[in-house]
Design a protein around this nucleic acid. Structure first.
Lengths: 204, 204
DNA sequence: GCAAATTTCGAGTGAGTACTCGAAATCTTT
DNA sequence: AAAGATTTCGAGTACTCACTCGAAATTTGC
């Protein structure tokens, strides 16, 4: 009797696949950062990565898929929090991330450009940014609650509102810094945090 | 002898002109607010105002011109500061403007959408937003300096940095509020101002 | 009421868009 | 090396874009 008909499904895609895909996502991130989602085109991404437009469609069937891949990758990269060990405090950690963002070119542009576009009708990244902002607010609110437990939060400061403000301030400062590099994102963030937090009790 | 050849230049355009133009600008503001500059089209504006696309070109020779007219109009409308008389303080005035923006639909969308797009390469509104942010920072910095003179600014608060932060916070909060209406723009702004200003000295 | 200026529009134009398709080239496994 | 799967690309599709042009309809000044 004949063996069972086996659907041969490729388990490992060709070796090139992952590398090509990564190159495309990176090129797309650059294009979207510089021109925005709507104004950036498949052709521009193809040119930058050195492939034909139709080859791109082999990896990403729609422009929307390409955008979502870009956002996913950024999350993955951003998840590697810098120097959590060396950060001596919550403030240090926030400022370290802010400083890292200003130093890696393209990150701020990407988020500033896309978050603005994302509020338009039916934009594919709208959901992503809604979740992202909500997540950041929740994370910071939790941090502030812990700080309050530790007696490090100034009286009368509401953790949820402070979290919302911190996220807003951060984003707004980054946008300004794109139009005028003299804007000091890190300095202003430090001012804000200094204003709502109490100094560490000096070890006698 | 014949009279001098007079170049007849129309001084007053046809009566319809101003009204039509205003209607177009308003329709364009709605389109740009909902879809952004690049994604919004002449056709959409024409449909909304009930004219043919080619008629629009009679009033605005390029899309860029239309965008600049929209931004100019918003400045003109915004220049009518609400209730400067009834504002009992700097804080009240800022919060009144913030509240007004949240209540007039379309204003926040327009600025959030366009300011994000404006940081992209060669965007026609880039210059506008650069100037606008710089102007707001200068205005608020001047206000904070006056408040310091009056002894109403908390010690250690730098007027310039506070102005930059206020503008950033305001913008960032508005963006968040578009994606989640529960975000309390006015409340967070009040929190911030309360944090850097001193309470009025009670009249004994 | 008449001539001139303005306003309106239908019908394009060329360029660019996301995306499809079929077949050639390349890679993997056997 | 042969067979099968994957990757690549050239050519094309249907569509939308900002914008042009020439001529008809309308408004204005006289």
């Amino acid at each position: 009797m004949a063996g069972p008909r086996v659907e041969r499904v490729r388990r490992v895609p060709y070796a090139k696949h992952a590398g090509r895909r990564a190159a495309i996502v990176e090129a797309a991130a650059e294009v979207f950062a510089a021109r925005g989602y709507h104004a950036g085109s498949f052709q521009q991404v193809a040119d930058r990565v050195g492939m034909s437009q139709s080859s791109l469609f082999h990896y990403f069937p729609t422009k929307r898929d390409l955008l979502l891949a870009v956002l996913e990758r950024r999350d993955a990269v951003g998840a590697m929090r810098p120097d959590r060990v060396h950060a001596s405090s919550f403030v240090d950690e926030v400022l370290a991330v802010a400083r890292a963002n200003t130093e890696i070119p393209g990150v701020i542009e990407l988020y500033a450009t896309l978050s603005g576009e994302a509020v338009t009708e039916g934009h594919p990244a709208r959901d992503y940014f809604t979740r992202r902002f909500a997540g950041l607010r929740a994370d910071f609110a939790a941090d502030f609650r812990i700080l309050r437990e530790l007696g490090l939060l100034r009286d009368g400061v509401d953790p949820d509102r402070a979290a919302t403000s911190l996220v807003g301030l951060w984003d707004g400062l980054q946008l300004q810094s794109l139009l005028d590099p003299r804007v000091d994102v890190v300095g202003c963030l430090r001012d804000y945090l200094d204003g709502i937090l109490l100094p560490d009790p000096e070890p006698a």
